[in-house]
Design a protein around this nucleic acid. Structure first.
Lengths: 224, 224
DNA sequence: TCATCAACGTTGCATTTGCAACAAAGTGAA
DNA sequence: TTCACTTTGTTGCAAATGCAACGTTGATGA
């Protein structure tokens, strides 16, 4: 029991949802929220496309993927979920009648499910933490919103060059330094920008040849 | 006074933020929230890029635009705001230190500002509506989240054809009918999908010639 | 050390796209 | 109606892109 508890605290540290909530209150809070844990076998569905969900998930153990099927039956992997990550929170909070995504356990998974109602509605016992939890949940949704705005800005660029320059300038601005990192490998960056990897590599080469950019692995620098 | 009040109610009807709140409670609620109204002259800034905001805006009167400046000084119009629309709610809720967008009054504008803190934090007098308001605010953010997911899916398509087919299939699915509408003109659709209008027109022509699609103005139909 | 495998850069090629220019059709006001 | 203006479709063309194929490099484990 103690190990699971410790595990939770560590996991929740990287998680905005429980920011500012005292460790000692965590267990009672989860009980008050009606949170339940569930285990899933490898390669099983944790959220079925077309279903309605009323809880958000937090992956406690294992590795999961969010997928989406198109009309022709092709399945695309939208994102990967790692321990500590929240998932499906927007669909739960928006009370979507048929979620368009599926969530798969890639390895055996343990998931903590928290009914969204319980988060939104202040409980009768008026726990001290509930106010904080609501604030956090709002911030989680809002932050994701802001992030998606940024990403849509990238995806709206018409050329690979524009996508790259816009993204890299954002990175530079965020870091504030002349030499700055990107958190992606080349393959991941291409995927993130929704472009072909080789075409992106070609464009990076051009930018380097034209003296606009310097890059060594994940470190970049603009040359005026 | 009465006219403004009537105006508010009508405006708020199309607005998810006040869903389920009794009309008679609106005025006292706004007072409790510390909402303030402000008028802006034509062509003035209502939110300055780089500033921090602590309130969300509701446009009561006039027409506004959200813009974004890139590093080279070019200004892009991101979206238009019409009476009744919420704006900047995500940046306010996420407590972004420097908003990357500007909001301009295109015509003279009247804006209702609601401090986000007051929405998030249950007030001491524990108004009956506050619970509802929090729930609504959460749903507003979550719904926008879901919508942006859909749009990112479109923008991630590699060809105009894929963007069109994906978008149109979504429309068909939502309507459930054989013949379905789209809420855009050709020009607007191209802008929405971030593609060149003439190239999109060309692609629509191909789809028609290949017998995949029928379209007359804003009514479409898939031919098997 | 050697073998294996994934990540990365490079290149040729067919296709797609943006862009510009123009014509036809539709819209609204005088 | 007529005129001015916007929307939409069409086309030529240069540039950008996806895709496939191949060689190099670097990391990992036997």
């Amino acid at each position: 029991m103690e190990t699971i508890f410790e595990n939770r605290i560590k996991l929740f540290e990287g998680n905005d949802l429980f920011y500012g909530i005292e460790e000692k209150d965590l267990e009672s809070m989860l009980k008050c929220l009606g949170a339940t844990e569930k285990n899933y076998k490898k390669n099983t569905l944790m959220i079925r496309p077309g279903s309605a969900i009323s809880s958000l998930g937090i992956l406690m153990e294992g590795k999961a993927q969010i997928t989406r099927d198109d009309e022709e039956g092709n399945t695309t992997i939208i994102s990967e979920i790692e321990p500590g990550d929240l998932f499906a929170e927007a669909y739960a909070a928006a009370q979507v009648a048929e979620v368009p995504i599926g969530v798969w356990a890639v390895t055996p998974c343990r998931v903590l499910w928290i009914p969204i109602d319980k988060i939104i509605t202040t409980c009768s016992s008026s726990c001290a933490f509930h106010q904080t939890l609501i604030k956090n949940m709002m911030k989680v949704l809002a932050k994701k919103n802001v992030l998606m705005n940024e990403k849509m800005r990238l995806l709206s660029c018409k050329t690979i060059r524009d996508k790259l320059l816009t993204y890299l300038r954002d990175c530079k601005t965020k870091s504030g330094k002349e030499y700055f990192f990107i958190p992606f490998s080349r393959k991941e960056l291409a995927e993130f920008l929704s472009v072909d990897r080789s075409a992106m590599s070609r464009e990076l080469g051009k930018l380097r040849n034209e003296g606009i950019l310097e890059c060594h692995k994940n470190v970049f620098k603009f040359r005026k």
